[in-house]
């Protein structure tokens, strides 16, 4: 892992900790290893006040987040952008029309530095898919100084609540 991925991952952890989620749902990717290790048993972000658990499909995670939002819980889902296609139907048929402020951190793939020969075919269409679906997102990549990352995540989460809608923050942890 390059120094910059370590720094970026740390910034994502700080941003997430500022939200202090009671529930952390995840569907891992290798690029998210450091972030997830923080929340998993043994990590500094693990604790009895926080439930951290795997979800088998991204759309199921969207529905669980929706139920948690109805109950007034702070929660976040951490997953990879090749799962965005999976979740669009559930996002657009429940939390979006029902105005639920759910929040996700999405690891970007594809682009410069990608080492997988296939994943870009879906991952590089992430913004286009979200735009077509009218889903609000913010981007964090090499264009944004790493010092701005954590505050952007904090504000992205607030934005979901102030605008009563799902919000995703797309994070490029690979250097692009």
């Amino acid at each position: 892992m390059s120094a910059s991925s370590v720094e970026r991952s740390q910034a994502v952890i700080e941003g997430l900790e500022s939200i202090d989620p009671r529930h952390v749902l995840y569907l891992p990717s290798s690029t998210l290893k450091q972030v997830l290790a923080h929340f998993l048993p043994g990590g500094a972000g693990a604790g009895p006040e926080r439930r951290v658990y795997p979800i088998p499909r991204e759309e199921e995670g969207i529905s669980i987040l929706s139920g948690l939002a109805l109950a007034g819980q702070r929660a976040v889902m951490i997953f990879q952008d090749n799962g965005v296609g999976n979740l669009l139907t559930s996002l657009l048929t429940f939390p979006r029309p029902y105005h639920l402020p759910i929040f996700g951190i999405v690891a970007r793939r594809g682009g410069l530095g990608e080492y997988n020969s296939m994943i870009h075919t879906i991952s590089e269409r992430t913004e286009a898919l979200l735009d077509a679906a009218g889903v609000r997102y913010f981007q964090l990549d090499s264009r944004t100084p790493v010092a701005e990352w954590a505050p952007t995540i904090t504000k992205g989460h607030t934005f979901a609540h102030t605008t009563h809608q799902p919000v995703l923050v797309l994070v490029n942890l690979m250097g692009g």
Partner: peptide, 25 residues
């Protein structure tokens, strides 16, 4: 009653999130 109008396949997971969120309430 929460009416999930056309969200097929999601009812159980929505209820799961609710049940987790209301744990201890």
């Amino acid at each position: 009653h929460l009416y999930s109008l056309d969200a097929m396949g999601q009812t159980l997971a929505i209820g799961l999130g609710l049940a987790l969120g209301l744990d201890g309430d």
